[in-house]
Design a protein around this nucleic acid. Structure first.
Lengths: 356, 356
DNA sequence: CTGAAAGCGCTTACAG
DNA sequence: CTGAAAGCGCTTACAG
């Protein structure tokens, strides 16, 4: 434990009166010898201002350190570029990568996204209500129950868009949402394992975003479907968490059963925890057990054995989600064809043929 | 590649007029048969409102779907709870964990942080100018050059606080900043390796946040200091990046030199890349080479061998940084004692005694 | 306990 | 090319 440090802020020259510190459009006008109207024209890049006048105003702006009041601008002009993203995590890879795509798309479009992390302690109704007040639209990363619960509470007159899990086939969520078809991807990943000769595939689950059963997530459903297609009775899913620690616990459980030769995990973090547990139990991957992750997090190709996983385009999902919100905020905006968010099975070193 | 999907938003009933859609305090007043003033009292929880009146207003609010206009509130009341965090990454662990602490502290204090990711293409002056307009204060995660450059461009009259690398001993940055003493931590980590009998320690560098030399970061300096203290001439640092891929490249370089027996990395992602490269080169960790990471990212204890690393309290750093900003925004606020952000050397499996 | 007035700092028509 | 007026939707004193 070492000593941290900090530099305190400079003490303001005149403590006390703070409100009047900020210089307004009228202060600039006075300094430049014009009307505040003209100042407004200058800061909004209106064409009809004499070059010399513009110059004088710009000088005044600089010397006075004028910054336009965003609240006044928003109120007077009616344009608000504030949106808020609701998420239960900023750390987990899928969430962080989706957030990245959301932010990038928002920034490019001139919006600036606020971030509000959802916690189990939140009064979701109040939270959503407050967020709806302070922003023009709401983006929600709804991969989990908390996100879905928040999404459901958004009043129908509030523009919103969500990144969600794939809905059941044939159904569409009643809120504007975008998803990646991870159900199909999970099925493909399971088929990969079955194709390698494994008699069955075990599943380490991520928590459900709706309902309460671990087998009710699209990833679990894809896994179930693949097993049933070949007449295999699915074993009970294990695990119930998002991180490596949850995977480790699940992995210890699975390692006790010598019949386990193939495991699919709801994400890569879980897979790394499982990998560790198998290693400790003396079971080799992929010689004794084949392991598949999900998400293709940045580290998965560098661990040993490199993880076979499903690549998910989370930044693309984030961008598509923002586009969906933007189409509601800006009637002029034509959202691009959304068919860009795909998945890919990346076969690396953690899966191999079943040896009898 | 599977087919993604999305639910389009409901088409608004009356396309065309949008502006007049929102219901104002006066609409509520009319519906409830009171003055807009009274509505203001109700939504601000002022005590002096008759229960029956309050009820009527609340009903009107509900049936009309009233949401208070945040811009008008901010303008009239003078209170703005918008702050913006500037960061060059939302994915890298140190950044994401600091952001988490920032957000948590901000949310708890009733602020809602906007997020603006900095890119090399940004015109930093314009970016900072715009951010300064739309938010009451700026928080910057300035672990790298981009962050530091943005920090330097913040006008001195704009409240700000930054999470920065430890400044040179005895110096303090000229902007309000908070840091973790990673210089000392790096020294401790290097000493750990030297104490294990390794004749020297190699360093895989993270990019510098100021200046241009890789040996000019606090972590590199701590490493240098430890080596010099025992009379060892430091080898040239290798690597110049943040992620596992950069570590992998550096690791391949180091693996070619049979004299390398101990490596310290600027972060855990780099260390995992190095680990992979050493593995591919047939060099065992820790038998042939000892490896130390930095940051204690969530996965480092689950990889094999589990990574010896330096735990950094990034969420604590984020919270302390927000406290520093808040002390400028809210004169009433007494920031807590900042001496809570520490480091800890976590010895796991990736380091061992030097065998001759 | 409740209402009428003034104003927050800007922009949007409207004049000239 | 530039200015005077009105108003965005709220809040803050000030009256009663």
């Amino acid at each position: 434990m070492s000593v941290p440090g900090h530099t305190p802020p400079a003490v303001p020259a005149t403590p006390g009166k703070e409100r009047d510190k900020s210089v307004s459009i009228r202060d600039v006008a006075k300094a430049a010898g014009v009307s505040h109207q003209t100042v407004s024209r200058v800061i909004n890049d209106h064409p009809n201002v004499k070059t010399e006048t513009r110059q004088r105003v710009e000088d005044a702006i600089r010397t006075l350190g004028f910054r336009r009041n965003a609240a006044a601008f928003a109120l007077a002009s009616g344009v608000t570029k504030a949106v808020t993203v609701l998420t239960s995590s900023t750390i987990l890879y899928g969430y962080a990568a989706t957030l990245q795509g959301l932010e990038e798309a928002a920034r490019t479009a001139g919006y600036i996204p606020g971030i509000r992390v959802l916690t189990p302690e939140d009064d979701l109704d109040r939270t959503v209500q407050k967020v709806a007040e302070s922003s023009h639209g709401i983006l929600v990363i709804a991969f989990d129950r908390l996100g879905m619960a928040a999404l459901e509470r958004i009043p129908s007159n509030v523009p919103c868009a969500a990144a969600v899990e794939a809905p059941p086939p044939g159904q569409t969520p009643d809120r504007p949402g975008v998803w990646i078809d991870d159900r199909a991807a999970a099925q493909t990943a399971t088929e990969h394992l079955l194709g390698l000769g494994h008699p069955t595939v075990h599943y380490v689950a991520i928590p459900a975003s709706t309902g309460s059963r671990r087998s009710a997530t699209p990833r679990a459903e894809g896994w179930l479907r693949a097993l049933r297609a070949v007449g295999v009775t699915p074993p009970a899913p294990v695990g119930d968490g998002w991180d490596a620690s949850a995977g480790y616990t699940a992995g210890r459980e699975l390692a006790r059963d010598p019949g386990v030769t193939a495991i699919m995990c709801g994400n890569d973090d879980l897979a790394l925890g499982v990998l560790r547990a198998l290693h400790e139990a003396g079971r080799s991957v992929p010689d004794d057990v084949s392991l598949v992750g999900f998400d293709d997090s940045p580290l998965s190709r560098f661990v040993t054995p490199a993880l076979t996983t499903v690549r998910m385009d989370f930044p693309g999902l984030g961008r598509a989600t923002f586009a969906l919100l933007r189409s509601q905020l800006d009637p002029q905006y034509q959202p691009p064809d959304p068919a860009v968010v795909g998945t890919d099975l990346i076969v690396r070193e953690s899966t191999g043929s079943h040896h009898v």
